[in-house]
Design a protein around this nucleic acid. Sequence first.
DNA 1: ACAATAGTGTCTATGAGACATTATACG
DNA 2: CGTATAATGTCTCATAGACACTATTGT
Lengths: 227, 227
Amino acid sequence: MDPFSFAVAADLVVLTIRDRALHVLLVERGIEPAARAWALPGGFVLADEDVEAAAYRELAEETGVAAGIHLEQVRTYGHPARDPRGRVVSVAWLALAPDLAEPFAGSDARSARWWPVAAVESGALPLAFDHVAIFADAVERARAKLEYSALAMAFCPPEFTIAQLRAVYEAVWGVPVDPRNFHRKITGAPGFVEPTGTLSREGGRPAQLFRAGPVGQLQPPLTRLGH
Amino acid sequence: MDPFSFAVAADLVVLTIRDRALHVLLVERGIEPAARAWALPGGFVLADEDVEAAAYRELAEETGVAAGIHLEQVRTYGHPARDPRGRVVSVAWLALAPDLAEPFAGSDARSARWWPVAAVESGALPLAFDHVAIFADAVERARAKLEYSALAMAFCPPEFTIAQLRAVYEAVWGVPVDPRNFHRKITGAPGFVEPTGTLSREGGRPAQLFRAGPVGQLQPPLTRLGH
DNA sequence: ACAATAGTGTCTATGAGACATTATACG
DNA sequence: CGTATAATGTCTCATAGACACTATTGT
């Protein structure tokens, strides 16, 4: 038996925050299989292409940007019957982006748009293939990693206020976060964020702007359960 | 271009505890490429085989057992040049086992044995292909996951004492753990372990035996840094 | 009795979580 | 001066971490 008979795909769970809620990028498939169904953006890895490079390429094709977007591998899905076209093993990636423009429909897609994560989680919007499981794993990864890492800053522009960062936590976790405790903890963690010295001005009192610091871990972590 | 030209491999990082130290299962390769080099056990996924089933199959071939061994996916490695035989994408798995008998050398291996993790981490024992990176990622996963999960029990037989469980933490982290604080925390976490009612007898005062409880998460976590 | 291991209680210091007021800008 | 948002301090309670002695068995 020739072992060189698999196709490898990169599928993307691209998350962003719009209107204070977590959204995921989905494409409406234009061709069979599963034409007209909503699915995660993705595609085959090319013969001489790194699997991570394939993920960046797909990301750029759908969103128009790739630089400055956080991308990390989630896991690989390889049930023999997961794709009707043949033996396709899919490497899933989690991408986190600041609020972007409207996405592009790639070559095989009828359309592409941001959907609220809650719509997919409620089951109101079914996804093609095994994409619901991939989606759920990726969202759980993002929620868990906010607790102990600088991942939330991947949803923000390079300079952001503490209130913006707090809004990320509230959107991703779907729970309110106390402004005072949050401010104390974030600014008190050495090297986690550093002030730029400038101020934002929009509405009320101007806020300090911060950028990501050199320390990517938050020790001790935040907790989302309020145990 | 035909996308169906990849091979998919399952590579295993099998960890166990012997002589109070963390050990990893390695095979000495018997055939090219990298003949006579030490490598992680693994092999190609078969044409109609689930990637997880392939990992279990390789595990059984090397160790003689598969039931009752914890197995979880780590990540996938897909650089185009990582394997000289062609385009091989490797899905890495972390397996945790109680102290097992000596391993078997599979069909393509000259020999197989347990090596101390420290020997690989120090660089004293080089590994073939990109297996050092895979190994490092898997060990870090295991160390991190002990903090907040029941993963340590995967290194123990079905019934174990608190002191045995503590020895797992000390072996995996390589740091001493206070017996009193550990006992208080483990037995105080509701549903994490449950007493069997029987006692172990070996040496000194008999110890209570426990089995894994229904709760797989430890909240709040243990910390390995003693921050 | 002695050796070996299990099991436990207390104190201190730190951090989580709850909560209301003052500060700064814009119109 | 009203409105909008940012920023902060204090108190209480829980738990992490340090630490030494008593209990139970086998030889």
